[in-house]
Structures are given as structure tokens and as C-alpha cells.
């Protein structure tokens, strides 16, 4: 628990350093900010117990960046194409992630996948809205889920 708190505090310290820079005169404010943020954060969000792999996280980030570029390009292509190639529709995806934070992280990540926007859950399945239902959406989602599990939720 203390370790988790310390790791969160470290994140907020990083944030503070990015915002304010490293100045010894800032120490009281930084301490107050980090303490308040850590306390709030622990109250709002209990620490997860899963193991994390730094390498897998790095892969996930790269995948994520790649996806967002592809997604943006994809939307731009469709928007600027004079024929407006859209085949919008809903696709249900049965996820193995437990509901709550994990599923939220997953939907948040996948909302930046090309052509998909999660629109909620129905009967335990995630419902995605797609720009083009003929794309292999489910397969992409499964790959993304696997990467996420490897990175954060490998328990």
C-alpha cells in the first residue's frame, strides 16, 4: 500500500516538475500539491494489485500512437473522399476484462482505434460504433486487448 502510494506520489512529482520546474523554493507548494493529489487519488481509485511490465507498456504506447495516427488518417481519408465511403453500424465485442476500471481503460484506448467508438455495454458485451462495419474490427480489438493485458493486467 505504502509502495503504491509512493509510486503515485512519484507520478505527481513528475507532473509538478513538468509544470513548475525544479526550484528548491517550490518545495512547500510541491509537497502540498503532491500530498493532496496522492491522498485524493488513493481515495478515489484503489491501487490495483496486478503486475506491470515496463516493456509491454512501452509496446502498448507505441501501438497506441500508431493507432491514433492511422485512425486520424482513416477519418481524414473518408471525410475528404468525394464519395464519402461510410458503412456505419454497431459491432458487439465480447471482452474478457472484468467490468470497472479495466474495461474503462480498454474502451478509452480503443476509442482511438481506427473507425471505432465505444458506445457502452449491452449484456456484458461492449458495443462499438464503426465507420465501416466491413473492417475486421473484432480482430483488431482482440489484439489491442491482448496488448493491454500483457502491459497492465497480467495477473
Amino acid at each position: 500500500m505504502a509502495l503504491k502510494a509512493a509510486s503515485r506520489a512519484a507520478w505527481f512529482l513528475c507532473l509538478w516538475l513538468v509544470l513548475a520546474g525544479a526550484d528548491p523554493a517550490d518545495i512547500p507548494a510541491a509537497a502540498a500539491a503532491i500530498a493532496a493529489a496522492t491522498w485524493t487519488s488513493l481515495r478515489l481509485l484503489e491501487p490495483s494489485t496486478a503486475r506491470r511490465s515496463v516493456r509491454a507498456i512501452g509496446q502498448l504506447v507505441l501501438l497506441f500512437l500508431y493507432h491514433s495516427v492511422v485512425a486520424g488518417t482513416d477519418v481524414a481519408r473518408r471525410a475528404l473522399d468525394p464519395r464519402l465511403p461510410l458503412r456505419p453500424g454497431f459491432v458487439a465485442y465480447p471482452t474478457r476484462l472484468s467490468s470497472g476500471i479495466r474495461r474503462n481503460v480498454f474502451t478509452t484506448l480503443t476509442s482511438l482505434l481506427p473507425g471505432t467508438v465505444p458506445t457502452g455495454e449491452e449484456n456484458g458485451q461492449l458495443v462499438y460504433h464503426c465507420l465501416d462495419v466491413e473492417q475486421p474490427v473484432v480482430a483488431e480489438l482482440a489484439a489491442e486487448e491482448a496488448a493491454l493485458v500483457r502491459a497492465l493486467y497480467n495477473d
Binding site: 491514433s68 477519418v75 464519402l84 467508438v117
Partner: peptide
């Protein structure tokens, strides 16, 4: 784009990029 959801794609993906 024709409807709200498709426009949402345009907004989130393109603008974020």
C-alpha cells in the same frame, strides 16, 4: 458526415491527431 456518431469519429480522431 451524416449523423451524430459518425461526426463523433471525425471530431475525436482527426482533431486529436
Amino acid at each position: 458526415f451524416p449523423d451524430t456518431l459518425t461526426r463523433l469519429h471525425a471530431l475525436t480522431k482527426a482533431d486529436n491527431l
